[in-house]
Amino acid sequence: MKAEAIRQPHPPLSACTSAILTDPQTCALFLDMDGTLLDLAPTPKSVRVPDGLIPLLQKLTLIFDGAIAIITGRMISEADQILAPLRLPASGVHGAELRKSPDGEIERVSAALPDDLVVSLRKLALQIPGVLVEPKGPGLAVHYRLAPHAEAEILASLDSFLDKHAGAFELMPGKRLFEIIPSGLSKGTALAALAALPKFRNRMPIMIGDDIGDEPAFAVAEGMHGFALRVAGEQYLDEVSDFAGPRSVVNWLDQLARRLGPPGNFRSHH
């Protein structure tokens, strides 16, 4: 019998599920995308959206009375394209972008990266087949999933680039990628900003993610007496994770939606 078939929910996941089923309107849901809702793909543009995910998120938006947000390393505009026609409150580029309501403007929390940095990294990508540079306005990602042998060379180049802009940017390692993000910003600062909005305020935050970049958001959620739920994959081993992979996350969300049904099927304690 496969391990997943006899897998028991971790205590945090069981407690989180109970809290949501008791009253979802005391909870707020914060979701990473790649590796959490979506399976990782060779390139950022080749991800596939699971069947039924978008209508499921629409149902959850009603059940949580709007207290559901995307916290991603992608740009918010790119997240919107993937989840179209759905738009949610969101943070992009590890906290460097923020949208406070579904129909609100995308606010850039930080200035764009210096042109010389972007140009230098584009040249690096041209020199190493399989390396992809993805500018994200105030941030940038260097993907090497198709050239894993180049990790050390890329890291050395990034370190030298960042030395020229000492203190202004931070290097965030991820799954076969490195990201340059403005110093002082993270998914943690993003979660804190979104959790302070009227729709999310005074609710228990639940952050679901799969990578190092999600750790600051996990810490903020737990600091607010909420839950940090990890997805197994290239970063977290199965035994320390709450979900076996993105499919497990989506299945859990789907079970919640089915059990709670449309608004009015549960009793709010507000």
Rank of each mutant, 00 (worst) to 15 (best):
V131P: 04
L132K: 05
E134T: 08
P135H: 13
P135V: 06
P135D: 05
G137I: 09
G139F: 08
L140K: 00
A141D: 00
A141C: 02
A141Q: 06
Y144A: 09
Y144E: 10
R145A: 04
L146S: 11
L146R: 15
L146G: 12
A147Y: 02
A147R: 08
P148H: 13
P148L: 09
E151L: 05
A152M: 13
I154D: 00
I154R: 08
L155F: 10
L158F: 07
L158S: 09
D159F: 04
D159T: 13
S160A: 09
S160V: 03
F161Y: 02
F161T: 00
L162E: 07
D163S: 14
H165E: 06
H165Y: 12
A166D: 12
A166G: 08
G167W: 09
G167N: 14
G167P: 13
F169Q: 03
E170L: 15
E170D: 15
E170A: 14
L171P: 01
L171R: 06
M172W: 04
P173W: 09
R176S: 12
R176A: 13
R176N: 14
L177M: 14
L177V: 14
L177C: 07
F178Q: 08
E179G: 02
I180P: 04
P182V: 10
P182Y: 08
S183G: 14
S183H: 14
S183F: 05
S183Q: 14
G184Y: 14
L185G: 06
S186R: 10
G188R: 09
G188M: 12
G188Q: 10
G188T: 08
T189E: 15
A190T: 10
L191F: 08
A192C: 05
A192L: 04
A193G: 08
A196L: 12
K199F: 04
K199T: 15
K199G: 01
F200K: 11
R201K: 15
N202L: 09
M204I: 15
P205T: 04
P205L: 00
P205A: 01
I206V: 02
I206E: 07
I206G: 03
M207K: 02
M207R: 06
M207I: 09
I208D: 05
I208R: 02
I208T: 00
G209F: 06
G209T: 05
G209L: 01
G209D: 01
D210T: 02
D210P: 03
D211H: 08
G213S: 05
D214F: 01
E215H: 03
E215Q: 14
A217F: 10
F218H: 01
A219T: 07
A221P: 04
A221W: 00
A221R: 02
E222D: 02
G223Y: 10
G223R: 09
M224E: 10
M224H: 11
H225K: 15
G226L: 10
F227Y: 15
F227H: 01
F227G: 00
R230P: 00
V231N: 08
A232N: 07
G233F: 05
G233H: 03
Y236C: 01
L237K: 12
D238R: 11
E239S: 13
E239N: 04
S241H: 10
G245R: 06
P246T: 01
P246M: 07
V249S: 04
V249E: 11
V249C: 04
V250H: 10
N251F: 05
W252Q: 09
L253S: 09
